[in-house]
């Protein structure tokens, strides 16, 4: 019989559970009530749900316990929160769902949300987005900061949520389904450039952790590991998880964008230079 206890949250966070429940409920409601021609296909729905469930799983199950007390599991957790989960969510193109909810918002709510829109536009400047994406990884892996984040419950939650939100922003910028020809979405060339640019510092950081002789992150030593494991092995595995899969995600992202760019090449043409001002 499978161990159900594994699915129970280690560190129960009502806010996290509520957020995930709202996202799934909002998505489901929109699916049921939107016009069929706008409704995403089943593959896209599954992709979205898998992405959301993965992120939930690493935050609110026993997995979170191992993430707190094993460096390499922690790296796996961030790989999902910052890369894989948001990657799938963005790839599933939830834009029709956003539109659905946007249409149903009252004017008051819209004006309330306006500052959020400004923040969003600033954060989605290509340079800011790229610097933020890599900067957050470096920030939370800066040894003194990492130490504090693992000691303080509040900082720990801030860390995980900041990774998830930044991951969503970043991968949405990369996989924005709107054509750069017709809208002000980021051009494919720039997207590819950013994906390649963010891969390099991540590879350097991962390699640095892998080849470090001493203990870089002694907090796991100080706080005890989930099970007795050689600290060197833990650090080596964690370094590899920081190094290889994120670099691969960048490559996969580049391939997907290239495919789209080639697909769209010549097929989507701006109606006319003057008329194309829907930005």
């Amino acid at each position: 019989m499978p161990d159900i206890g594994f699915l129970a949250p280690y560190d129960f966070s009502p806010l996290t559970i509520l957020s995930f429940a709202l996202v799934l409920a909002g998505y489901g409601y929109a699916l049921l009530h939107m016009s069929p021609e706008q409704r995403p296909g089943s593959v896209r729905i599954v992709t979205f749900v898998v992405g959301v469930v993965l992120c939930y799983g690493v935050m609110q199950t026993r997995f979170d316990y191992y993430s707190q007390y094993m460096f390499f599991v922690h790296r796996g957790q961030h790989l999902i929160l910052h890369h894989l989960g948001p990657f799938l969510i963005a790839l599933s193109n939830p834009l029709p769902i956003f539109r659905f909810w946007h249409e149903r918002m009252g004017p008051t709510l819209r004006s309330w949300l306006r500052p959020l829109g400004w923040v969003y536009r600033v954060l989605q400047q290509p340079v800011i987005a790229a610097v933020l994406f890599v900067g957050l990884i470096y920030f939370w892996l800066w040894p003194p900061i990492h130490f504090d984040a693992m000691l303080s419950r509040q900082l720990y939650w801030t860390m995980n949520w900041s990774m998830l939100l930044d991951g969503l922003l970043f991968w949405w910028l990369m996989f924005d389904s709107r054509s750069p020809v017709l809208t002000n979405a980021l051009g494919y060339g720039k997207r590819i450039l950013i994906l390649a640019a963010v891969a390099i510092p991540q590879m350097i950081l991962g390699a640095w952790i892998v080849f470090s002789r001493g203990m870089v992150y002694d907090v796991y030593e100080v706080c005890g590991r989930a099970w007795p494991m050689a600290p060197e092995t833990d650090q080596l595995l964690g370094g590899l998880l920081t190094w290889i899969p994120p670099a691969m995600m960048s490559v996969v992202g580049i391939l997907l964008i290239l495919r789209r760019a080639m697909h769209e090449d010549g097929r989507i043409v701006k109606p006319s230079r003057l008329a194309g001002e829907n930005s």
Binding site: Y65, Q68, Y69, S152, G224, R225, A226, M229
Partner: peptide
């Protein structure tokens, strides 16, 4: 924010604790 864990006991029943 710390933890502990047990190793598998050996033949004499001794085990390590992290």
């Amino acid at each position: 924010r710390t933890t502990f864990g047990y190793d598998e006991p050996d033949a004499e029943g001794n085990y390590n604790v992290s």
